[in-house]
Measured scan of single mutants.
Amino acid sequence: MAEIKEKICDYLFNVSDSSALNLAKNIGLTKARDINAVLIDMERQGDVYRQGTTPPIWHLTDK
């Protein structure tokens, strides 16, 4: 899980924002549900936040 978090942070640092599906595909996974639990956990920790569009767009925080 730590490896996936690191990949998410690296990708969002370079791209600035992404949907869960696009993010999953760009870090080597196939479906948004493969990454949603990790994104929600990271959101609780304050590492990422989502804009409430459908589907949500994920961003890194300034943390």
Rank of each mutant, 00 (worst) to 15 (best):
N36Y: 09
K31V: 02
K5Q: 08
V38G: 11
G28H: 04
E43T: 00
S16L: 04
G52M: 01
Y49K: 14
G52K: 07
Y11F: 12
E3H: 08
V15R: 09
I4E: 08
Q45S: 13
T61K: 11
V48A: 08
R50V: 06
P56K: 04
T54C: 11
H59D: 07
L12D: 02
P55Q: 05
G46Y: 00
R33W: 12
A24D: 01
I57W: 05
L23E: 07
Q51V: 15
L29Q: 12
D62E: 13
L21M: 13
K5P: 05
L12R: 07
I8V: 02
V48M: 01
D34G: 03
I27L: 13
D17T: 04
F13E: 15
R44F: 04
K7H: 03
L21R: 12
A20T: 08
S16M: 06
H59I: 04
A32G: 12
E43Q: 05
H59K: 15
A24M: 06
L39C: 04
P56W: 01
F13S: 15
I4F: 02
I35G: 03
L60R: 05
Y49F: 10
M1D: 07
I4P: 03
F13V: 12
Q45I: 04
A37T: 10
R33Q: 14
M1A: 06
G52Y: 01
H59T: 12
R33S: 15
S18H: 07
N22G: 08
D47H: 11
Q51W: 06
T53V: 00
S18M: 02
C9H: 11
K31R: 13
K63N: 08
P55S: 08
M42A: 05
T54M: 09
D41Q: 09
M1K: 14
T30A: 14
S16N: 13
N14A: 12
W58M: 07
I40A: 14
N26E: 14
F13I: 14
N26H: 15
V15I: 10
N36C: 06
W58H: 08
V15K: 12
G28T: 02
D17M: 04
T54S: 14
I40N: 13
E3Q: 07
R50A: 09
E6F: 01
D41V: 00
N14S: 13
A32P: 10
Y49I: 13
R50Q: 13
A32M: 14
I35F: 02
R50S: 12
K25V: 08
M1V: 13
H59W: 00
I27R: 03
Q51G: 10
R33D: 15
G52R: 04
L39S: 09
G46R: 00
S16D: 07
L21N: 13
L39W: 00
D10F: 02
E3L: 03
L29T: 10
A2F: 05
T61P: 06
R50P: 03
N14G: 09
T61M: 10
S18E: 04
M42D: 03
N26F: 07
G52C: 04
R44P: 04
L29R: 07
P56N: 00
I4Y: 06
K63R: 13
P55H: 05
V48I: 11
I35D: 09
A32H: 10
Q45P: 00
K31G: 12
E3M: 03
Y11E: 12
Q45R: 07
Y11N: 06
D62A: 13
V48K: 02
L60Q: 01
M42V: 01
C9R: 15
G46P: 01
N22I: 07
H59F: 07
E3D: 12
F13A: 15
R33T: 15
L39V: 03
N14R: 15
R33A: 15
K31S: 15
L60A: 10
G28S: 05
N14V: 08
Y49R: 13
W58L: 05
N36R: 06
L12T: 00
N36A: 04
P56M: 00
D41L: 00
L21C: 11
A32F: 11
A37K: 14
E6R: 07
P56I: 09
K25N: 09
D62Y: 05
G46L: 00
S18P: 01
Q51K: 13
I27W: 01
M1G: 09
L12V: 02
I40T: 12
L21T: 14
H59E: 08
K7Y: 01
Y49Q: 13
R50L: 02
